[in-house]
């Protein structure tokens, strides 16, 4: 690739998440959108909405008039679901639009996807991106986070997303099958647990999944909390205040035993000489890392086994996309040319 070509390249990093998708571009643009894609159900809906396709919160808002897709529902594209594949393609196109690339520039895209999706849907995802970019690569989300943080050796990345919790041990190479694990007890699972607990305790109130998701994002915590969690929900049409502190704690802690067990198990299969280093370097990323008290809770929980040190990253929303952007920009020219 000649220097001119390199100069003419615009690099884009995308974090294609179950819940949110984020784009980070070399021109400084950083945007995010909720991972919903909706097509108007009929010509009436299309005329009313005035758009061929809607994304994110706008799609959610008009969901009754749309064929709505949340393409990576459980961290993977459902097998044979063309609608989800089409949704990924639309979403990628939308994110690239949001990056606002200067006309005439060639585009190089690196996309981080849930680890399980990389295993089972890599060709579908790559096809979806290839419509938009001259050069492209697809990697797992925890890997792109690790790359952005520069923690490529003797580190475990714990990426708590909506559809899956992805575990990935970095040991100086691209992670392989045995380095990675995924469990489905993630953000969506917590939401379902919270809704169930609240509906059981307050059958008179109308809680919805979207409502409890917002409660969790605002007040979610594990361990002890000094302040009470109070929210409002309608009872016979009248908004009423509820104290949901205990339900919130129980729901947020529900995936913790599985997380601890997987961390211990994954480290146990690592080279014994380096297990200690990995135990001291466990980084929590993804939206789930914003649960208050999470790093302390997990550090305490692993004390009964071999003590581990967990640290939450500062900017979980952008970390994946920023890492992917760095990866795209760092890729040597001779490699880039063939991707």
């Amino acid at each position: 690739m000649s220097p001119n070509k390199k100069d003419n390249m615009q690099y884009i990093g995308i974090d294609l998440g179950t819940s949110r998708s984020v784009v980070s571009a070399s021109n400084g643009n950083r945007k995010w959108v909720e991972s919903y894609v909706g097509w108007p159900k009929d010509f009436v809906a299309k005329k009313m909405l005035g758009k061929r396709v809607l994304f994110g919160s706008e799609a959610l808002e008009h969901r009754l008039a749309l064929n709505l897709s949340r393409p990576l529902q459980n961290g993977v594209l459902k097998e044979g679901t063309e609608r989800d594949e089409a949704a990924v393609q639309e979403l990628i196109g939308h994110l690239i639009e949001l990056a606002d690339v200067e006309p005439g520039k060639d585009i190089c895209v690196a996309v981080g996807v849930p680890a399980e999706a990389l295993k089972v849907n890599k060709i579908a995802i790559r096809n979806a991106i290839s419509e938009y970019a001259k050069n492209l690569m697809v990697v797992s989300e925890p890997f792109s986070v690790a790359y952005g943080l520069g923690t490529l050796d003797n580190t475990m990345i714990l990426d708590i997303g909506a559809g899956t919790v992805d575990f990935c041990i970095m040991h100086g190479t691209v992670p392989m099958e045995d380095d990675q694990r995924s469990i489905l007890m993630a953000g969506d699972y917590v939401d379902e647990q919270l809704l169930k607990l609240l509906t059981e305790k307050h059958p008179e109130a109308d809680f919805s999944l979207n409502m409890v998701r917002r409660f969790k994002e605002k007040h979610g915590f594990v361990g002890s909390s000094k302040r009470r969690v109070k929210v409002e929900a309608p009872v016979d049409g009248i908004f009423t205040e509820f104290d949901i502190t205990e339900e919130m704690r129980r729901a947020c802690e529900s995936p913790m035993p599985a997380i601890v067990e997987t961390v211990i198990d994954l480290i146990a299969g690592f080279d014994p000489e380096f297990q200690e280093s990995v135990r001291k370097n466990i980084i929590i990323a993804g939206g789930g890392s914003q649960l208050s008290g999470l790093d302390t809770f997990l550090t305490e929980a692993t004390k009964q086994f071999e003590p581990c040190k967990f640290t939450c990253i500062d900017d979980p929303l952008h970390a994946g996309a920023d890492g992917a952007l760095e990866l795209a920009a760092d890729m040597p020219e001779e490699f880039l040319e063939k991707l």
């Binding site: 690569m137 697809v138 790359y147 100086g172 691209v174 890729m331 490699f335």
Partner: peptide, 10 residues
């Protein structure tokens, strides 16, 4: 790592 990403994607 970059070579690995390249090989995986290529």
């Amino acid at each position: 790592v970059l070579r690995g990403v390249y090989e995986d994607n290529a």
